[in-house]
Design a protein around this nucleic acid. Structure first.
Lengths: 344, 344
DNA sequence: GTGAAAGCGCTAACAG
DNA sequence: CTGTTAGCGCTTTCAC
């Protein structure tokens, strides 16, 4: 089916190949040959050619051609990495959808979708640079490389960055460091002394700042830096593995700050496996980015961005940019919310 | 900014309004007026008009115009509902992406995205019917209305249905009923007698069949139907609430089958709150659709579609349809995998 | 039964 | 500094 090195096949290619008109090909492709009463033989020949030449329709052309000129179609995207857990974007997604629904009418339709890119390779995402994919996007879960790319580029459309600080962009983020500091305070308040931060090896802006602020606060109050336990990735299993190793080595820990809830979930397992109890032996604080933190056993005490507020801010900003283009970029800081549950 | 009832504004509208050419407008829109050395005044006038008239670019037109005719762009979508938890699609998504990456070359690029629709309103999704949005899609988490819509429509492109049986479609699904039966067997084997099924109020094909097969098996072996506990939705909180009510009413339960892991997660909480232990007092079986079932406390015993196998099948089927169009629709049944962990 | 022609909205190339 | 022209790939109307 691949044709190697020539240009992609179009309806024209097929038409020429079969000896019919592009119109006939189009008719067959959309299964409308019955009403057009094409000869069965023609239909078959066209189908064969389509298969043989490996035809792939050009979606943009179809869309342009078929769209009703009376209605405006607005494409909104939430751009995240394949590597990040999907639930991280679900609140923002739902909020954007809610606002889109409220603005939908017969002449104005929205599509909200999640676009995925490989961490660190945002620049490779087709259509980002020339604005040929989305009318507006929310970008999140970027890695430093992606941030650098954004910083170096002026994207000519509505872009809201979630959870990162990037010059000249409209950014919504948790208060820098504030989360880590509050987390430290909670643990300090329960008179712990052996502090541990659990982080993934690859830090994002937010996770790096949470960890840094946590360490700074602990150091300030106790004179010592917390131990740093590094998980190879951000999935629970790697968090479990890292903490298990730490505990098994007999290294002390009675207060744990996980910069991500998934990591906290893994930590729970390691702690159970080490026959310690939460919070009796080890108090745990997470950040509240997991939708089910309340259902952890015991429920996870969290200090982190107030997710609903963040989602609302980010969606509002997006629609704002959409209607008043060229607004002055701002950073919106959402103060962390503290949810005291059982784990600390 | 809304202009009420006329046709959407295009670059032409703006050009006419300002008294310049469409090209000038386009240049300003893509921030290239510097290199074109447009007069600052002109730029400002255009910007003002753009804002005033509420211009929204037509993405399809842009894409068509700007795309490099040497490269084929293939749009793949995973279509799911806003209402379903996003992690349900993550395995399929990653698998599709993996296969897309393997097929990517300089003249062939893929975009994989998640498209969202409101449960029961798949038919309203723009571009679905006329194939003007995706070259191929995986549809999942549909409600009966959506299934009916699909059944009544012949979509002229690659469609793989995940987890539903729909005539004339390429469907990948867990073995009907098999999961429910195996779940019952596991619980029966541990000599339980007070069976309960926990389901959401709104059943999908899969959840309905799991529950039905479970009940049938239990009835067959014990002569009695399991009690049915109905959660108002599928989030953990509603599962917890429903089971809590059941237990609080003093109704018996020593074996629980949750047709969804989220519900099982809620059940865990209700069971803890009722001071029962898992599995000592109540054995629990889930389906393994939650990515973190292994990190539940205790880890959840699951009988359900082997998710990786399903993801692989579904992605393979999609690419298969993409390259050999008009393949005979088939149903692919993936036998359930049983993961015995601690909860039963 | 089938082909020709027009044009969706946009931007790039070229001409002034 | 700006306008005109052409055409991306497709489908739909109309004419034969």
């Amino acid at each position: 089916m691949a044709r190697g090195d020539q240009r992609p096949v179009t309806v024209h290619t097929i038409a020429k190949h079969v000896g019919v008109s592009p119109a006939a090909v189009s008719t067959v492709l959309s299964n409308r040959h019955e009403e057009r009463r094409l000869a069965a033989a023609t239909v078959e020949k066209i189908r064969a050619a389509v298969r043989e030449l490996g035809y792939v329709p050009n979606i943009a052309a179809r869309r342009l051609r078929t769209h009703d000129p009376e209605v405006r179609h607005i494409d909104l995207g939430i751009l995240t990495t394949f590597e990040a857990p999907l639930f991280l974007v679900s609140r923002a997604l739902r909020q954007v959808q809610r606002m889109a629904d409220a603005r939908t009418d017969p002449k104005r339709k929205f599509s909200v979708s999640i676009g995925m890119f490989h961490a660190g390779r945002l620049r490779e995402m087709p259509g980002l640079l020339n604005a040929s994919r989305f009318n507006g996007v929310i970008v999140t879960n970027t890695l430093p490389d992606d941030d650098a790319f954004l910083a170096a580029t002026a994207l000519p459309y509505a872009v809201v960055v979630l959870g990162r600080r990037i010059p000249n962009y409209f950014c919504v983020l948790e208060t820098p460091g504030e989360s880590g500091r509050r987390a430290a305070e909670i643990l300090l308040a329960s008179h712990r002394s052996q502090f541990v931060v659990l982080t993934p090896a690859l830090l994002t802006q937010s996770t790096a700042e949470r960890a840094a602020a946590f360490c700074a606060t602990v150091r300030e109050r106790t004179g010592r830096d917390p131990a740093r336990v590094i998980a190879s990735s951000f999935v629970p299993a790697s968090g479990a593995e890292a903490l298990r190793a730490h505990l098994a080595a007999g290294r002390p820990c009675d207060a744990l700050y996980a910069v991500t809830d998934s990591l906290a979930l893994g930590a729970y397992q390691a702690i159970r496996d080490g026959n310690r109890r939460i919070p009796r032996d080890i108090a745990v604080v997470g950040v509240g980015d997991h939708e089910h933190a309340d259902f952890f056993d015991p429920p996870l005490t969290c200090v982190g961005p107030a997710n609903d507020t963040v989602a609302e801010q980010v969606a509002t900003s997006l629609f704002h940019l959409l209607s008043h283009r060229r607004v002055k970029p701002v950073e919106l800081h959402v103060p962390p919310s503290v949810v005291m549950r059982v784990s600390a």
